[in-house]
Design a protein around this nucleic acid. Structure first.
Lengths: 115, 115
DNA sequence: TGCTCGTTTGCGTCATGGTGCAAATATAGA
DNA sequence: TCTATATTTGCACCATGACGCAAACGAGCA
């Protein structure tokens, strides 16, 4: 999450990293998978994660790959199983970096609850 | 962005609000529109926003509606123009709330830069 | 009222991506 | 080596959503 603003302020939002992050989190199934992973606060195998939703395990595997590429989860292979876990700190850090960049750019638009 | 954890921890991530937020931000064009809006740090009409990208203005209008429904931008009609602006505080707050919930649930998974 | 400008909406088209099934791959154990 | 289990990958299908164009809507102005 680079903070460089080459063209416009908040241009960091257009980074590949931010883009991938939002794409990873915008699918309901992937979000369910993520919640399932946070639920145990540790590691889970693909099979274990797959219990979260009524979809084929191969699909879960693909979603986990997507989340992994986005830096949301990490994968550790042990024996014939692969253990996935949430990269909590990295994820929280990325989200806060985006929030920071937004505020640094557009100081404040406090509102009266207008839409 | 409710912080209630009815079922699992981080279940707040499954809220409609969070879901809409990520869906709104996962499209490259909408992100470009958002950056364009942050660039001026104020208001922009649909036509002005549309200069950000080579797509039809009607499409930009639709994207702005999506962003508005997700609580990312606000719209104010004045005369025959509609002025859109970023809801910086609300957006930053939402992102931080998600980061907070993640950390509150899964304390820490500090890492050695493993993937 | 009639005209013009800015924006939104209806609709058809097309690309993307989520999904399931079956086959392939990898690893542990007999 | 052969088998069983866990995961990933190839492939085809289908739903969703982004897009452009044209028409509709709304507000200001002559």
């Amino acid at each position: 999450m680079t903070q460089t603003s080459k063209y416009a302020c908040c241009s960091g939002l257009r980074d590949e990293a931010a883009s991938q992050l939002f794409k990873a989190l915008c699918d309901p199934t992937r979000m369910a998978i993520l919640v399932r992973l946070t639920d145990c606060c540790g590691e889970r195998t693909v099979s274990s994660v797959a219990e979260c939703c009524p979809i084929d395990m191969s699909v879960v595997s693909r979603h986990l790959t997507t989340l992994r590429n986005a830096g949301v989860v990490r994968a550790v292979k042990r024996g014939k199983e692969v253990f996935y876990s949430v990269r909590t700190d990295a994820l929280a850090k990325s989200l806060r970096a985006i929030a920071d960049e937004l505020e640094a750019c557009c100081p404040s638009t406090k509102e009266d609850s207008s839409e």
